[in-house]
């Protein structure tokens, strides 16, 4: 069977190894498990795959109360009880009270779909195990109606995790895994340019310098991530900040940092000798980064 190959899309820069991982997962028909720091575009990946390959995207947001069963189907017994009491509808046809969940939707989709199971680690520990069979065999049985729902096309399953909980081994064994590491300055410059194509290169360089300086500070409670950088650059542009001022005073710091202690720490460091301004021998390469 001819398979389409994912190449990335215009508004989502994808690293070589991530692209490989996506294509490997699609070719093997395995779920792709994506981990990484917040703000590295885990959720955006599924969107980009769907767009790049022209497939519909189905998003299943996981919360702490989500049960695996809800992804398959829900039998709305309360509605049926109401109907039976008021006699509005013929309640003997159970099928009308069965609603397919997101996984069910992906199975019956006319075209091959991309199913994003977002933040799977939010759910109960057993949640991933409860889905093993359905993700492997790609069908499930509805005892109420005696129907079996099988996948017309095996959906491309993308699962994201923030490592809040360990995932069960049996589940991991079946996944293709990729860790999105934090982009290095070069990659980050490209990412910012995708979102702000007309940005002055001077301003961008200074903003990145300040951004990676903040990230390199030890003991931050919450390091600023890509999405915060993008917001901050937006703020700098709207505020008409001159590039020289960016590293000297880091305006709109509140856009980057969300914790009081972090805020104080950065200000203290900024105004101390050896702060960002006075630093010579700037460490241009940050250790974590995306390989090209």
């Amino acid at each position: 069977m001819e398979r389409s190959i994912y190449q990335g899309t215009a508004d989502y820069l994808v690293s070589e190894d991530l692209r490989n991982a996506v294509n490997i997962a699609m070719a093997l028909g395995r779920p792709l498990l994506i981990k990484g720091e917040p703000g590295t575009g885990k959720t955006m990946l599924a969107r980009s795959i769907a767009e790049g390959l022209g497939m519909p995207l189905i998003i299943w947001n996981i919360k702490s109360t989500t049960k695996a069963q809800e992804g398959l189907y829900v039998y709305d017994t309360v509605q049926r009880l109401y109907d039976s009491q008021f006699g509005d509808r013929d309640v003997s046809d159970i099928r009308q009270y069965i609603r397919l969940g997101k996984l069910g939707e992906a199975f019956v989709s006319e075209k091959q779909a991309v199913l994003l199971i977002d933040e799977i680690d939010k759910a109960d520990l057993e949640f991933p195990n409860d889905l093993l069979w359905e993700l492997d065999i790609m069908n499930f049985y509805i005892p109420e109606t005696g129907e079996t729902i099988s996948a017309r096309h095996r959906p491309v399953v993308v699962i994201t995790s923030n490592a809040e909980k360990e995932l069960p081994d049996a589940f991991l064994r079946r996944c293709i895994f990729h860790y999105i590491s934090f982009p290095d300055e070069e990659m980050m410059a490209n990412i910012v340019r995708v979102h702000h194509p007309n940005l002055e290169s001077n301003l961008l360089a200074e903003a990145l310098k300040a951004f990676y300086w903040i990230r390199s500070l030890p003991g931050l409670l919450k390091k600023p991530s890509t999405s915060e950088l993008l917001d901050w650059v937006q703020a700098l542009v709207v505020g008409g900040i001159h590039p020289d001022r960016v590293t000297a005073e880091i305006p709109f710091l509140g856009v980057l940092l969300k914790k009081n202690q972090d805020f104080d720490q950065v200000l203290r460091r900024l105004h101390s000798p050896g702060g960002l301004q006075r630093q010579t021998g700037w460490p241009g390469n940050v250790r974590s980064g995306i390989r090209n």
């Binding site: 997962a25 070719a27 991991l172 064994r173 996944c175 895994f177």
Partner: peptide, 25 residues
């Protein structure tokens, strides 16, 4: 995956393929 030629014919391809399939954290 190797049978299907997913590693290409290069060691780098094999590196990423093996890592994606074998390593889960």
């Amino acid at each position: 995956a190797l049978d299907r030629g997913l590693a290409g014919a290069s060691l780098s391809g094999f590196y990423y393929l093996a890592r994606a399939v074998l390593v889960k954290s």
